[in-house]
Nucleic acid binder design. Sequence first.
DNA 1: GTCTTGATCAACCATGTGGTTGAGTAGACA
DNA 2: TGTCTACTCAACCACATGGTTGATCAAGAC
Lengths: 124, 124
Amino acid sequence: MVDQDDRLTRVFGALADPTRRDMVARLAAGDATVSELAAPYDVSLQAVSKHLKVLEEAGLVRRSRDAQRRPVHLDAEVFDLMTKWIERYRQQAEERYRRLDQVLARMQGKDSPTDEQRHEGAAG
Amino acid sequence: MVDQDDRLTRVFGALADPTRRDMVARLAAGDATVSELAAPYDVSLQAVSKHLKVLEEAGLVRRSRDAQRRPVHLDAEVFDLMTKWIERYRQQAEERYRRLDQVLARMQGKDSPTDEQRHEGAAG
DNA sequence: GTCTTGATCAACCATGTGGTTGAGTAGACA
DNA sequence: TGTCTACTCAACCACATGGTTGATCAAGAC
């Protein structure tokens, strides 16, 4: 579990950079070499290589060999880890919100909240 | 669009920290004050306040007032932005993968790839 | 062998980040 | 009025990050 937490830190951290997000977007359309990936950006090849290392350590990308080229491949599986984390808390928050709405609706029907109604928010 | 890119950078960046992810997880269960949020961690209140500022600027959290308390509320809407971004490229990558599988399956059936088969990977 | 290409490693630099402590602010309360 | 509580702001520090340049490596091309 701690291991997964570290993984989440790396993945979110990797995608916190717009250049790296852009690279992921391009790799979703197909594999590419480092030079190909570097072409659109106004930074050195070394900088791009560093970005790829971050993506690789986050498990978002794999690098193989083809002569002196190193084709980069998007490994979309890690996305699952993120969406699961996000969905979990979103659903939790939304359900809580829904329950609050119900309580508020009842409060409008009557006049002031009773003890019974206030307890509903803490149930479940 | 650039605005949204900046927003994504903030959200991913905010969630790249395990303490902040933990705070989000706890806020999903219900609103809390700064002191309440700080309690489980072995850091100063000021550090927690800084974390909350990051979460707020990412749009993940809203802070209101209740006397000298500042209740923190999770704003789960921003999660949508992330999941949309993630899903878009995951689906793209998975579809590409599926198509590649089809090509490989046919290659196993025959002997070597024909020009027709190689073009299938670029279609769509 | 030597050159060229594609990419990485290493050292360095400026800036950002997460933490600290100390001072200051806003509101409840005696 | 002064004091306590809850919190923020400001200054500082150590370390991480994104960028640079120069050297190096690995594998074709000549």
